[in-house]
Each structure stands twice: as structure tokens, then as C-alpha cells.
Design a protein around this nucleic acid. Structure first.
Lengths: 231, 231
DNA sequence: TGTTCAATGTCGCAA
DNA sequence: TTGCGACGTTGAACA
């Protein structure tokens, strides 16, 4: 990792063209060659960047560039494709360099896949007497998160989201419509399950005749994993 | 902007829980208070982060933490909500600090709106004899990208995407359904136009009776703009 | 390797 | 503020 605080201008050309006028910015060059240009604000997305694999060439400015005060020109080209980043450096204010070694990586907990596992294991959250048919039930337009059998012999399609929004309801609607064409499944109803459901999504779901179900992740995990109760 | 190269562990708790075991990483603190934790690889997305507005508190380790070698504990809390980031620092290898000033910002030249202009100008790409009614035809549920008249006197609603995916087909379906309730327009058909159309989107479009049209941006620009042929 | 879907998505615009 | 769609989306899982 190399980090540079420098007054620089940046030009990107590739999937689009973008330009940054000269200002002080942070320039990062990672071990894999990727380059990030960060301003002192905004969120985690850099102003400009180049993803690995790519090649960085540091060179002198042309006479015209030197006349405008440029002291170095860095050119970063993506290994495949036309993408190119040109960094014109006017002044270097500070720099750091360090070899990090391999990162042990991020451990995540509480994503949608976990919700799906937990609901499959606690399928009676759909209501007493429900039985799991299978998770990731395949259809022509994609897999249904959970398919279950209700006590009356009907089929229940469940769409799970961490945050229940309108596009999730659309998705479930498509599944239910498609599955209802399958005579083997009988009558198919839909359940829209999420940790939180936005009002618009709830209204649309009700309008489409779909049930909504709010999932309490902590509680579901508590039932599933007794050790979690300790906290 | 403060930049720190440090051996640290990181824990995020909020919309999900995420943990990073101790390793050398780059810690950035921007002027607006946002914090980014970067590894020496991967793309521009940090391993962990906190977006502004948030508050950083630097404090001493607890006795237990100190016993494990922690020398500083940084706690970053989001101003609204439960989101919190805890950075336990074991060793500081290097640091930089600098006041950047305001960034002049990014100037972009996009490709997106261009497709609509080009297709409107070359409306017969829909088929011989088509005539443009108007771009951005307003409806109660949003503007239709392009409305055209086909040779048979019917109306064609066109939804344009750079990348044709399933939600675009949904959007077009809604428009076509709505427009077909308008007796003045006669029979309304739909065309889903994109630079590339994914198989699932194509299947859904066909299932809904919508035509698909793949747009060649370079060719359309070539027809429209003679100067582009020089390249 | 390509495809599909989630994301602590982020970002920008408009109602 | 919320909704909605695009993004140089990125990232991960799976076929």
C-alpha cells in the first residue's frame, strides 16, 4: 500500500469520461495495483479509481504539462479493456508506504441468507402446521426463497428480504403468478417476509393478496442458537 | 483527512454485524467524520466504514483489552441509529494528516440519456414506418421513455435501459397496461430496448408479449454523428 | 468462467 | 423527507 496526499488533477476514460480539476486529494495504490482517489468527504466511494488488474506507469510531464506546474504524470491502464486513469500531480504534500500482508478477511452475520436458514428451520413462523417443501425452489424466472405446504394442502411461496420494499413485492408477485400455473402445486399463496416492511410495500402486498410477515432476527437466532440467549 | 496505517481489529454493529480480526490496515478519517478501513487489496469498497454524520471517540483500552495488546480504542457512532464501529488499535505503523479544503467535484460525461435521444432520432430502428409521438411521454406512474406510432396505426411504448434486466420489463409492463386503458391511443404494444438484454429479462418480456430490441450504441452514434465515423 | 442476486450498497434527482 | 432508478455499481454464490 502506498498513500499519497497530493494536489492533482485526474481524468478517467472508459465506460464514461470523468474529469477532476486540480485540488488536494488522497491517492492510494494498493498491493494489487488498484488505485483510489479520495476527497476529504463524501462516503466510501472514491472520486475516481481503477480496479485490479491494472498497470501503473509513473512518468515525467510533457513540456506543456510542466509549464502548467505538473511535476509527475501517473497513467493507470486496466489490463483488459480501454479503461484508463491519468493523474497529473502538481505537488506532493505527504506520503506513506507499507507492506500489509494478507488480510484475514471480513466475517459477516445477519444477512439475508441467514434469515432464510432461520425461517426454514422455524417454518411454523408462517403459521401452525406449515411444512417446508424446500429452500431456493427453482423456477424459470429465478429461485423462490422458500416454498412451504400449508395445513390446508396449499402451497406457500415466501420471499425474504432484510428490508421489505416495493420491488420485493413485485418479485413475489411474479413467483406466485408463475407457480399458480403449475397444477401440481395447487393453490399458491405468497408471504412477504422481512425484518422491516415499508408502508408502501405493505400496501402493495395487501393489494396483491400477499401476506406480510415481520421477522425478528435476534429472536429467531435466539430460538435457533441457545448460546445467543446469554447476551 | 487523517490516514493511519495500524494493526487493528474492527467490529461493526448495525444493519448487520461484521468483524475483522487483527491485521495491518489503512484507517482513514475524513473531514466530515466518516471513517474507512481499507485492506491492501480488493476494490474501492472498504472492509468496514462509517458514513457521516457520525462521531469518533478515541479512548484508552479496558484492562482486558490492554492485556491483549490493545493500545487505543476508537469508537465511531452514527449520529442517527444504532450503527457503531469499534476499532481496536494494537500498533500504529505510520500516520499522515492534512487539511484538503473543498473539492471542486467530479465532471461526468454519461452515455445513458444519449440512448434515448439517438433512438428518438432513429425511430425506424423499431421497424419500418414507425413515427415518433414523443419522448418522456407522461403517465400517472411516470414518464414513458418513448411513445411511437406503428405503421398499422397502433401505439408503441418503448422502455430504454443501458442494461436490460427484469425490473425494466416490469416497468414497461406497467406502462403498457396503463396506456391500454386510454382509448385515444388504440392498441398499445411494448418494446424493451437495451444495449444488452439478460436472458431472464428476455424470457419475461416474451411471456408478457413485449418485443425486445438490442441497441448498438456505437452504430447508432455513427449514424447520428458523422464525425464519429472518423474513429 | 459466466450468470444471478444481495448490498451497512451509494448517489442523484424529483415530487 | 421519501421514492425511484442508475451505477465505471461491487461482491459472492452457484452452475
Amino acid at each position: 500500500m502506498r498513500a499519497l496526499i497530493a494536489r492533482c488533477s485526474v481524468d478517467y476514460s472508459g465506460r464514461l469520461d470523468a474529469h477532476l480539476d486540480p485540488a488536494v486529494r488522497l491517492v492510494l495504490v494498493k498491493a494489487d495495483g488498484s488505485v483510489l482517489i479520495h476527497a476529504d468527504g463524501g462516503s466510501y466511494k472514491p472520486l475516481n479509481w481503477m480496479t485490479a488488474p491494472c498497470k501503473l506507469v509513473e512518468g515525467p510531464p510533457s513540456d506543456a504539462e510542466a509549464g502548467q506546474g505538473v511535476i509527475e504524470v501517473w497513467t493507470v491502464r486496466h489490463a483488459k479493456g480501454e479503461d484508463a486513469l491519468t493523474i497529473r500531480i502538481f505537488e506532493i504534500l505527504d506520503r506513506m508506504s507499507c507492506d500489509f500482508g494478507v488480510d484475514p478477511g471480513l466475517v459477516k452475520d445477519g444477512v439475508e441468507a441467514h434469515l432464510q436458514e432461520l425461517l426454514a428451520a422455524q417454518i411454523e413462523l408462517l403459521g401452525p402446521g406449515h411444512r417446508l417443501i424446500r429452500r431456493e425452489y427453482p423456477t424459470a424466472i429465478g429461485p423462490v426463497d422458500i416454498l412451504a405446504r400449508d395445513p390446508g394442502g396449499g402451497t406457500v411461496a415466501v420471499e425474504i428480504k432484510r428490508r421489505g420494499e416495493i420491488d420485493g413485492v413485485e418479485q413475489l408477485s411474479r413467483y406466485v403468478e408463475l407457480l399458480n400455473r403449475d397444477p401440481l402445486l395447487g393453490k399458491v399463496t405468497g408471504v412477504f417476509a422481512a425484518q422491516a416492511i415499508k408502508p408502501q410495500a405493505r400496501v402493495l402486498a395487501e393489494d396483491r393478496g400477499l401476506r406480510t410477515l415481520v421477522l425478528d432476527y435476534d429472536e429467531m437466532r435466539g430460538v435457533d442458537d441457545p448460546t445467543a440467549r446469554l447476551f
